[in-house]
Design a protein around this nucleic acid. Structure first.
Lengths: 239, 239
DNA sequence: ACCTGAACACCGTTCAAGT
DNA sequence: ACCTGAACACCGTTCAAGT
C-alpha cells in the first residue's frame, strides 16, 4: 500500500528526472513528499528515489536531514510572499491588515496540513521569531505595518505576541483536525471509540457536537475577538 | 558530552536497576529521559540502558516506540490529576474554574518543556479530544463543570474549542521560548544573529523588546480576554 | 515468566572512487 | 563537477533461545 503511494509520487517526478539536481528542486520534492506521506516518512533515501538519484547525492546541496526540513519551512513560507493579500501594507486600516495576514497564513496551513507542524513547532533560531511566523520578512512586514498605523513599539510587539499565539493554537488544531493525522491508510469514518468513554457521560453525550468541524468560524471569531481586544487597548492608551 | 548526561540519568536510576520492569517504570524513565535529553534522543536501546536492561525487554510491556510516547503523554496528563487546583469542580464560579484549569495545564507544560510538544502536537485518536487536553477525564471535567455553571451544550463546546486553542498556542510558544529548543549543548547567550537581519530594520531595532520574556503576563492577559469574551457571549444569549 | 543474542530491514552520514 | 558504492554506526522490531 505505501508502495502504491510512493510510485504515484515518483510518477509525478519522473519527467524531470534528467534535469540536474539543485537545492530548490530537492526542497520542492521534499515538500511534495511530505504533503503526500507525512514528515516521518520522509527519508533521505526515499527522497533520493523520488528524484531519481541516490541518497548520497543530496548531501551536495543540503547539509543534512535537519537542514532539509528547515529548507522546507522556508519553501512553505516563501509561498506566502507570492500572496498579494499578505505581502501588502495596511491600506484599509490595521484591522484589515491583521485579517489578511491571518487568512494568508491559514491558507498555507490548510494547503499543507502535514507540513504545517514543521512551521509551527520547529524551534526558532531566534527568540523573537515566533512560530508560525517563521520568516523575518513577515515579522518585519507585520511590525512595520503596525507602526505605520500609529502603534507604539511596545504595542506592536504585544500585538505580535498575541497574534502568533492565536495563529499557532488555532491553525495547529485545525490542521490536525483535517486529517493531518491520517497515516498511510485513511479509514473512511472511524467508529465512535467506546474504549475509555466509561465514566465520561458528558463527553459521550456531546460527541456529535464535539465532532463538528467549526474551524473556520472558530478562527474568525477568535480573530475578531483578538482585534477587539487590541482596539480597546489602543484606544484606552490614547493612540 | 552526551555520555556525561546519559550517565547522570543512569545514575539516578541505578538503585532501582534490580526491581523488575513494569510498564509504569518504563514510562517514568522515558519521561525523565525526555526531560533531560529531548524526545528525538529517546531510543529504545538507550531507554533500555537507563533501566539496566536490553532494548528488547521493553517490548514485553510496550508495543513499540510510538505507543511508548503515547504512554508518556498519559503519564504527564495523569500528573495533573493529582493537582488539587485542577481536579476540583467550580466552586467559585466558572471564571475561577477556567483560571485554575489553565494554570494547572501551564504548570505541567513548564515543568516538562521538552515533553510538552508530545501532549500538544500528537494527533488525537478522536476528533473531540483536542490537544493539549489529551485526557478524557479532563475533558469530561471541563465540560461538566461548565454545564453545572449553567452553560448550554453548545456554549460549553464553544468554550472548550476556544480554550484549547488558547492553551495550545500560548503554551507551545512559551515552552519553546524557555529552551525547550536547547539541544545537547546549551549556548550561554546566543549573540544577536546578524545573518538575515539585512532589510529588517524594524526587527533589528525592536530586538531587545522582542527578546523579553513576558510569557506569564501574556498568558494571563490572553486568558483574561478569553474569559471576557465568554462572559459577553453568555450574558448576551441570556444564560 | 522474564530477559537476551542474534538477526533483519532500514536509517543518516562519510568518503574514496568513478564518470 | 556531479553522482555512486561501499561502509559505518545506529535505529526499531522479531523471534528463537536461554535462565
Amino acid at each position: 500500500m505505501p508502495d502504491a503511494d510512493l510510485l504515484a509520487v515518483q510518477g509525478r517526478e519522473v519527467p524531470s528526472a534528467r534535469i540536474p539536481l539543485s537545492r530548490e528542486r530537492i526542497l520542492t520534492a521534499a515538500l511534495d513528499f511530505i504533503d503526500a506521506e507525512g514528515v516521518s516518512a520522509l527519508t533521505m533515501r526515499k527522497l533520493g528515489g523520488v528524484l531519481g538519484v541516490e541518497a548520497m547525492s543530496l548531501y551536495r546541496y543540503v547539509p543534512g536531514r535537519e537542514d532539509l526540513l528547515d529548507g522546507v519551512v522556508d519553501t512553505l513560507v516563501s509561498q506566502l510572499d507570492l500572496d498579494e493579500d499578505v505581502l501588502s501594507t495596511p491600506e484599509h486600516g490595521w484591522q484589515d491588515f491583521l485579517q489578511r495576514m491571518a487568512h494568508g497564513v491559514r491558507r498555507v496551513a490548510i494547503a499543507h496540513p502535514k507540513a504545517f507542524p514543521l512551521v509551527a513547532s520547529t524551534p526558532p533560531e531566534a527568540p523573537w521569531l515566533r512560530p508560525p511566523l517563521r520568516s523575518i520578512r513577515w515579522v518585519e512586514k507585520f511590525l512595520s505595518g503596525l507602526l505605520s498605523e500609529g502603534f507604539s513599539d511596545e504595542q506592536a510587539v504585544a500585538v505580535y505576541r498575541a497574534f502568533t499565539g492565536f495563529l499557532l493554537g488555532n491553525l495547529l488544531l485545525e490542521v490536525s483536525h483535517r486529517g493531518g493525522a491520517v497515516g498511510p491508510l485513511d479509514l473512511v469514518e472511524e467508529e465512535v471509540p467506546q474504549r475509555g468513554l466509561r465514566d465520561a457521560p458528558v463527553v459521550e453525550r456531546l460527541g456529535p457536537l464535539l465532532s463538528q468541524d467549526e474551524s473556520l468560524r472558530e478562527f474568525e471569531e477568535s480573530l475578531e475577538s483578538l482585534i477587539d481586544r487590541i482596539t480597546q487597548q489602543v484606544s484606552s492608551s490614547g493612540a
